[in-house]
Design a protein around this nucleic acid. Structure first.
Lengths: 114, 114
DNA sequence: TGGACGTGTAAGACTTAACTTATGTATAAT
DNA sequence: ATTATACATAAGTTAAGTCTTACACGTCCA
């Protein structure tokens, strides 16, 4: 591998709404750059650049098909995100139960959460 | 609400390694800014600014305690991320099964995925 | 073989992000 | 009251990100 698989890149790649939309589109079927750019309010080079970022993050792969380039989703790197999120999943179940007590406690102390 | 809960902010807030570390630290216990800054190679104002971003994304809340400000994790907005990820989870199970066939097919056609 | 098509990439302008230093504000301590 | 502490915020600087335009390259077609 030329570059160590950069953990951060996945989070960062997915931080952009445009790139998330690209991934969403590719999740239904593999597509050419042209096809992806059509359904966007972006020029083709812009889309191509975003795809390059996704490619570096390992989230998509591309193959040549004639003069087209067909992009395909590779969801594997998202597992890392999912794993990270798993550590927090307990909170949005536990929190629900604790919420009532918290409210009572902090209202009494006149402390406000914001 | 002054601002509609910005969906994008959560993804973007979590894109920064520093902010993820802050969340990780807060997941064990609520802490003051000073306490958080100590375990970081960042100045206190820098930490404070990152916390402000997390606050805007709804990922942390703060209360005053004397002259301290105690920050607390609020994992709720991460549910949205988890939901988005759920749409992809099927790939890293399905993909495993399909991988063998894909390899055979594309090797035969001399198409390389990169 | 020349031209159109599909795409990648380079260069530049513009926007946004992230830090540092400096200043302001509220609370606590003396 | 004055000073110190804990933090937020403003201002300024530098780095990153994202677009557009222009151009290069490979592939198909006439």
């Amino acid at each position: 591998m030329a570059r160590p698989l950069a953990h951060d890149d996945v989070f960062q790649a997915v931080a952009s709404p445009a790139r998330r939309t690209l991934l969403d589109k590719l999740s239904s079927r593999e597509q050419t750059v042209h096809s992806l750019a059509e359904s966007f309010d972006m020029t083709l080079p812009a889309v191509s650049q975003q795809l390059a970022i996704l490619r570096r993050a390992g989230l998509v792969s591309a193959r040549r098909a004639g003069r087209w380039r067909v992009y395909r989703l590779n969801a594997e790197p998202l597992r890392e995100m999912a794993r990270w999120l798993d550590n927090y999943q307990r909170f949005w179940t536990a929190r629900m139960k604790a919420l009532g007590e918290d409210l009572k406690r902090y209202e009494k102390q006149d402390e406000r959460w914001r």
